[in-house]
């Protein structure tokens, strides 16, 4: 098993563990988690402590974030063309549909083999989170800075050459 897939399994494991950790609370709110640790992608950034309850209270409508299958009618007109009467699905978590690695050769091949697939343009899990969260935060005036939701890890600082890894000024001044 190479490093990448280890990481992938580890990430999935954490995601599932996150659900189980939250599961005792599901009963109280109809199997809906009150808070989630979104750690599936934490590497450059720490995981996100997502206050699901707070967001539910603010939005008041599951379909605003979870396209369909939550009991609320579908909001997106385009989705509604097929899904306005879709039954509730068993799992509605983002990661159950949105792939962790949307551009891996395996996933691309899988998509290619499935000629009848409609959702050919499904964003990966990371993109789905960010588009959904950041899109709404922009509209509603929520925090939009990267580190407002997830502080950067040391690996992140190293990649971004920030913090302790910040370049000495003028060190890399190239050709005009």
């Amino acid at each position: 098993m190479d490093k990448k897939s280890t990481l992938k399994w580890l990430a999935w494991g954490m995601l599932i563990a996150g659900f189980f950790m939250a599961s005792p609370l599901w009963g109280n709110a109809g199997e809906i988690p009150e808070s989630l640790e979104l750690q599936s992608l934490s590497e450059l950034y720490e995981g996100v402590s997502f206050d699901h309850l707070l967001h539910m209270d603010m939005v008041g409508n599951c379909a605003a974030c979870h396209h369909h299958g939550t009991g609320d009618p579908v909001e997106d007109e385009n989705c509604a063309r097929c899904h306005s009467y879709s039954k509730d699905t068993e799992v509605v978590s983002c990661g159950s549909c949105h792939p962790l690695e949307p551009f891996s050769p395996e996933y691309l091949r899988e998509k290619e083999m499935d000629a009848n697939r409609y959702h050919r343009d499904m964003p990966g899990l990371k993109a789905a989170y960010h588009q959904s969260c950041l899109g709404c935060h922009n509209e509603m005036g929520g925090p939009t800075g990267c580190q407002d939701c997830h502080p950067r890890t040391e690996a992140g600082d190293a990649l971004f050459r920030a913090g302790a890894y910040a370049p000495e000024s003028g060190a890399a001044a190239g050709h005009h």
Partner: peptide, 16 residues
């Protein structure tokens, strides 16, 4: 930032 790391490019003048 990812490109810089992958292609082993020189340190940028400013953080990404």
């Amino acid at each position: 930032a990812a490109c810089n790391k992958e292609q082993k490019l020189p340190e940028p003048a400013m953080p990404f």
